[in-house]
Design a binder for these strands. Structure first.
Lengths: 132, 132
DNA sequence: TAACTACTTTATAATGATTCTAAAAAAGTG
DNA sequence: CACTTTTTTAGAATCATTATAAAGTAGTTA
């Protein structure tokens, strides 16, 4: 299993559940966006075993902390995550309530001219809202 | 009352509660960011009467729909609003969990090169996360 | 002013995402 | 294996937000 090392290296024990979640998240052809609920359904369908909802939450948060997932800053009742952890941005289609990736190269360089004392920039994320 | 017209013009009846909320939101020296909870406290302190939580929610959503408030896209357990409805952006201080305005002129021009068929851009919002 | 309609407020209940709990299970270690 | 630490789990708890439905208010027309 290719994920055993990955987990061990980040100080997470490679449990059955975590490895299964890795498969669902990182064996996909393309990166994708998901909510915990959507992910739970996906797991149920793809892997033929049930993982407790609490475990899904725990795992996703652990993975996010380790940088294997990104949270997408958007106002929704549910939290959106992205398996694409490269530096990139998002369209949000207000009508269809769908997220679309917007690669860094599709947005000109962003220059933050204002500086805040004693703070450094961790990330710069652009959300482009779309309507019909 | 200067807000009576404003409300009437947008098809909202100028009720006592709405006018009081207008005062708290728009009579402040500076624009500010708030959650519904923070706003409720502010109302209680500033106006000497209680407005039902449901009314605060209704009013804030009505004002947002009319463009008198903006929702700030950020992942938090609570929704953040901004009385600054000009086209602008935000810093989010991860350590202090605080929002800071980032005016449009403090960010170089943003060019969205990718187009989505049949959709038009409604807004472009930048969130700059800060850490110590 | 009265009568009427449509909208608004309110307290409270319901919802639903997320977190907490504490006991059982699994992983790591010697 | 014996032992410690971490993880999983079901279910309960929390907490922001939304729904409900009854009472109140605004606007309108006469």
């Amino acid at each position: 299993m290719k994920y055993i090392e990955k987990l061990r290296n980040s100080g997470l024990r490679p449990t059955k559940q975590r490895l299964q979640i890795c498969e669902v998240l990182f064996d996909a052809d393309k990166t994708f966006h998901f909510t915990i609920n959507e992910l739970e359904k996906k797991i149920k369908k793809q892997i033929n075993s049930k993982i407790s909802l609490a475990t899904v939450y725990n795992t996703i948060h652990a993975f996010e902390k380790k940088g294997y997932l990104k949270q997408i800053p958007i106002n929704s009742n549910q939290t959106y995550f992205d398996t694409n952890v490269s530096d990139h941005h998002h369209f949000y289609d207000l009508n269809d309530e769908k997220l679309i990736d917007l690669e860094n190269c599709d947005v000109g360089p962003i220059n933050i001219l204002k500086k805040i004392n004693g703070k450094k920039i961790k990330s710069v994320e652009v959300l482009v809202k779309l309507e019909d």
